[in-house]
């Protein structure tokens, strides 16, 4: 009996030492392709430019609008209140910290949908939640909000209200809807952006 216990003890010791000298195991926690396909198909990953504009005007602290175009393009023209994370620097620590903040809606946009979609897929594969794409990108935003067309008086009341909202938002961003005036305004807007980013970092609980 005692001899058997000795063998068991030695076996346990060998297994224990084996574990001790085992290299750390890394797990691949990326989402499976099938699951990702389902998520890509889900229309709720898009947010319309009106919804985002509304939240920007209301200074929603739970929204961060991310421009994934290059820094040069961002400087020339960008949606006021957005921050710039070029696609190629998406995986830097500072940007991952924003992505990992749980209670923050991260919305990507580029000129059209393509670059924003790429950013979305990369982040989704890394397992980040509450990330969205602004539908139609900057082009659509510019056409609907900044260059909002006055509807005819015969249009239904909803359309008129939507126009008034868009006009109001445009004035909120650019004064009288003059896009050259918008350039000077943009600098002050950038300051609030930086503040927002810090807030995001402070509340992040480790992220990924």
């Amino acid at each position: 009996m005692n001899k058997n216990y000795l063998i068991l003890t030695i076996l346990a010791l060998i297994l224990g030492f084996g574990i001790l000298f085992m290299p750390d195991i890394k797990h691949n926690n990326e989402i499976k392709p099938e699951k990702l396909l389902l998520m890509v198909d889900e229309p709720s990953r898009f947010l319309s430019s009106d919804v985002i504009t509304d939240r920007l005007v209301k200074k929603d602290p739970a929204l961060v609008l991310i421009d994934v175009r290059s820094a040069a393009e961002f400087k020339t023209f960008a949606i006021p209140g957005s921050i710039n994370i070029p696609l190629d620097s998406l995986l830097e620590t500072s940007s991952l910290e924003i992505m990992g903040t749980k209670d923050l809606d991260k919305v990507f946009y580029s000129n059209a949908d393509v670059a924003a979609d790429q950013a979305w897929i990369i982040c989704k594969r890394m397992g980040f939640e509450t990330i969205y794409v602004m539908q139609g990108g900057l082009n659509n935003w510019f056409n609907t909000i900044v260059k909002a067309e006055k509807p005819a008086d015969t249009e239904p009341i909803e359309t008129v209200e939507l126009y008034q909202f868009r006009k109001g938002a445009s004035q909120y961003f650019y004064g009288n809807g003059d896009s050259t005036a918008g350039q000077s305004q943009q600098n002050t807007q950038k300051k609030t952006t930086i503040l927002m980013k810090k807030e995001a970092g402070a509340s992040s609980g480790g992220g990924c």
Binding site: T9, A12, L13, G16, F17, I19, L20, F21
Partner: peptide, 15 residues
């Protein structure tokens, strides 16, 4: 701790 060290200590403690 690392998983390996904890598992090892647990085995030793059990023995």
């Amino acid at each position: 701790m690392s998983k390996a060290v904890f598992a090892f200590l647990l085995i030793m403690a059990a023995i």
